[in-house]
Design a protein around this nucleic acid. Structure first.
Length: 201
DNA sequence: GTGAAGATTAACT
DNA sequence: GTTAATCTTCACA
């Protein structure tokens, strides 16, 4: 393949932009986790933007700053991993500058590397079922809360650009009815035509 | 210290 | 379409 297909790790500067711009840029990028069990990687095909203190759907809405949301106030380029419903982990990428708690919630990945390991972790052979949802992708990638606050410019968990520039479609975010009028915002983004989305857009 | 609610999923009817 | 599983986090006392 040509040089443009070579993957390169995204640097700190990539994450220092506001949420909606970062969302568009992150779509189609590759998430890589070098775990003790092996390396897994997946292309981001679906995500949602959470726009900080003014976004009712965001954990940092209204300036809420607790042990859990603390990492969102750091500068961009860190992982925000949390447990939901006592059973599943979800992963976010922190973007924006220091004290600007924008984040990108990863909803679905397309498996790229370490697929056998993903199948083993998920207990299924169906490719489309490996990473098609926020909880699923964390299981498949081996992401848990030990990666809370992990530096995405480090060597355990990071994002890569392989030159792929997807056609982007957008729609309303999912399952945040409690967010009132902010639940109406078209802040969910996906790669058009991908077979790996968590829900129809 | 106590209690209510949740950025989900899979298995139901 | 509805619901149980399951436990951390946060708000209040």
């Amino acid at each position: 393949m040509s040089d443009s297909m070579r993957r390169r790790k995204l640097g700190r500067e990539f994450y220092l932009r506001e949420g909606l711009e970062a969302a568009g840029m992150l779509l189609g990028k590759i998430l890589v986790h070098d775990s003790p069990d092996g390396l897994t990687a997946g292309r981001i095909v679906e995500l949602e933007a959470y726009m900080g203190e003014s976004d009712k759907g965001c954990h940092a809405y209204g300036g809420r700053r607790t042990a859990r949301t603390e990492i969102m106030y750091a500068e961009g380029g860190y992982a925000y991993v949390y447990l939901i419903y006592g059973m599943y982990c979800c992963m976010n990428v922190i973007v924006g500058g220091k004290d600007i708690p924008h984040c990108i919630f990863l909803r679905a990945l397309e498996p790229v590397e370490g697929i056998e390991l993903m199948k083993k972790r998920r207990g299924t052979d169906r490719l489309r079922n490996l990473c098609g949802g926020p909880g699923k992708l964390c299981i498949a990638m081996g992401i848990d809360r030990s990666l809370y606050g992990e530096d995405l410019c480090g060597s355990r968990l990071w994002l890569e650009d392989d030159g792929f520039s997807p056609e982007i479609i957008c729609g309303r975010r999912i399952n945040i009815d409690y967010a009132g009028e902010d639940a109406e915002k078209d802040w969910r983004f996906a790669v058009k035509g991908s077979q790996f989305l968590s829900a129809k857009l």
